[in-house]
Design a protein around this nucleic acid. Sequence first.
DNA 1: GGCGACAATATTGTTGACAATCATGTGCGG
DNA 2: CCGCACATGATTGTCAACAATATTGTCGCC
Lengths: 215, 215
Amino acid sequence: MVKRQSVESELRERILRGDLTPGDRLPEVQLAEELGTTRFAVRSALQALEARKLVERTPNAGVVVARLDHDRLQEIYDVLELLEGLAARLAAQKSTPADWAELQELFAEGGGLDEAAEGGDIDVFLAAIDRYRDTVIELADQSFLAEMLVGVRDQSHLLRRRILMTPGRMQESLAEHRMVIDALVRGDAEGAEQLKRHNMQTARKRLSRYRDFLV
Amino acid sequence: MVKRQSVESELRERILRGDLTPGDRLPEVQLAEELGTTRFAVRSALQALEARKLVERTPNAGVVVARLDHDRLQEIYDVLELLEGLAARLAAQKSTPADWAELQELFAEGGGLDEAAEGGDIDVFLAAIDRYRDTVIELADQSFLAEMLVGVRDQSHLLRRRILMTPGRMQESLAEHRMVIDALVRGDAEGAEQLKRHNMQTARKRLSRYRDFLV
DNA sequence: GGCGACAATATTGTTGACAATCATGTGCGG
DNA sequence: CCGCACATGATTGTCAACAATATTGTCGCC
């Protein structure tokens, strides 16, 4: 009976999907009956989510979905840039060109992503980037880095969508990812790392520029 | 009443000090009476330590101090190199030469660290490096990075001592830290980052070379 | 009408008892 | 003597009731 874990992942998904927004309260009893489980299981799950910094707890008062803080997000992007760069570098080192066939096809010109970028179809675009992420993490083959990346990404996840909504970001991101993937296919570890880091830097700049809209 | 936190920090310190070694069991009831508290508080603390990867839990069987795994430690050092480098870079950017006066004096030739390195006085040497760490983290002034560094360092902490015990490591590390500090005093962010990364790389090499002894 | 004290309510924190599960030791059969 | 089934004990997992605390609402006073 893995109740805690299922409750934890359910709540995590709701937070990441934006179903629960920052500041929303998470009362234990209400969640318990809503999820058809006990208060105990919910409590354990909330403790785990607190350790992941997805929720904040104020003693005897309650738990709320973690609020986004601009300065902290900037700091998160500093770290994320390094981790994403490392993942790209390792993936380039450990892979062969054939490993990238699917991803290459997905991102190829005429593959529909240009239209998605123009049309503002964020979900299609996000799905493509998720495929990039999954592939890189799998090929980088480092469990510790993977755990780390998941944790840091989770904390900045709500921003991803909003950054993509800033004018021209999808086209910009698409072009950058194509360059990254080219380097990965070539097995150019240094290039892949630098290009991915550059991709994160341009995202970070948007975070500063559109600060008022984003946070 | 902050029972959980005090129990958590107590157990954390015992693990980091080596008072509890990897594989040691941590029975809830025994720890409760040993620490003069309740099983509930111990349990909460163990859950928190599990999230930090300092202990491992096998369902219905018990909790043990996290075991060290060579491959995982290599991966940890990959990440640690990046984070320590970032901290050095930020500290260099945000500081003035005066901020480093104390540290500079501590690491100066004739300050006693050479003798400690020669004499194998690990505790004196570790205290000096801790001072370096504290100073850099304070001047880097990024809470997120600081939390991250603490978490990753904790997981590799037991290795630090052992790596320092390998032949010539203390002298090597001392020379490297002097170069890092020089760069920090100069405000040379790039140099500080690269030099600190190099310092982590040489540590990582020892981890490989003395693998059998260390893990 | 605004503000502060205070009561009422809702929510979390804690406790002890009980159930579930795994590790260990014992005896039987081969 | 070895291995396996099984009982026993130790340990963790779960629950429901109770206590402690913060929040909210209300009343009286200025």
